[in-house]
């Protein structure tokens, strides 16, 4: 068993926290796990990437085209990591753009979100949700990392029960009720949105095919 999950997004979105929860839950389930982090710039609005690798893996870094899942708290940040994806990769992303504050001094403008999602859809298997809105509904916009973990748990990807993930969230984070709601809202959103849709695009690949639980 080997599973590679890339978590990405903007500093301050709780990416390191989400990665660490995935890591702790994997350890509890008895798997080997590596979580590679980036520190220092996390609270300063830059890009944050975290590689979570579970099972029979050696390197802390996911090789090109070998991420099974990419979870992103921001749409263009998901696209920025597309070299890590293949046609079977499941991409779970929040649809809310975070415009870089430096955009006014940049030659490149922020692209239309729909175009970004379309490209992700063309390249991989895309699950795009409004995690920001769901987090607000759960009680705190900061809980969108947990919404995305809930969304992940709706797919048959992790080698352990999603309850273990929820349990780890409860142990690791304050605001238990908010986070439990956020997790559930993420999970339900995916079930609602992707019910009956066959995410099994590729017929050639083996293993790690994405289906709803």
């Amino acid at each position: 068993m080997r599973l590679s999950i890339l978590l990405t997004g903007v500093g301050g979105h709780g990416i390191l926290t989400a990665a660490s929860i995935l890591g702790k839950a994997s350890l509890k389930a008895g798997y080997n796990v590596l979580v590679s982090e980036v520190h220092g710039m996390a609270q300063r609005g830059g890009i944050v990437n975290c590689n979570v690798r579970i099972g029979d893996v050696y390197s802390p870094l996911i090789p090109k085209g070998r991420a099974d899942v990419i979870i992103s708290t921001e749409p263009i940040e998901a696209l920025r990591q597309i070299d890590k994806a293949n046609e079977k990769t499941l991409i779970i992303t929040d649809v809310n753009p975070v415009i870089p504050p430096t955009i006014y001094f940049s030659k490149t403008s922020y692209p239309e979100v729909e175009k970004v999602l379309e490209e992700l859809r063309r390249t991989c298997k895309l699950c795009a949700i409004d995690a920001g809105e769901l987090a607000k509904k759960a009680g705190n916009v900061l809980a969108k990392n947990v919404v995305l973990l809930g969304a992940l748990s709706a797919f048959d990807v992790l080698p352990f029960d999603s309850r273990l993930l929820l349990e780890t969230i409860a142990e690791s984070l304050p605001y238990k009720d908010v986070n439990a709601r956020a997790f559930k809202l993420g999970e339900e959103e995916v079930r609602k949105k992707y019910k009956g849709i066959n995410m099994r695009k590729s017929q050639t690949g083996k293993g790690n095919e994405i289906v709803l639980r």
Partner: peptide, 19 residues
């Protein structure tokens, strides 16, 4: 020959900034 997936859209940079 690893994956050569690249964004076809030009993406703006996101350098870290002062809070």
């Amino acid at each position: 020959s690893p994956s050569e997936n690249k964004p076809s859209i030009d993406l703006p940079q996101r350098p870290p900034v002062m809070c």
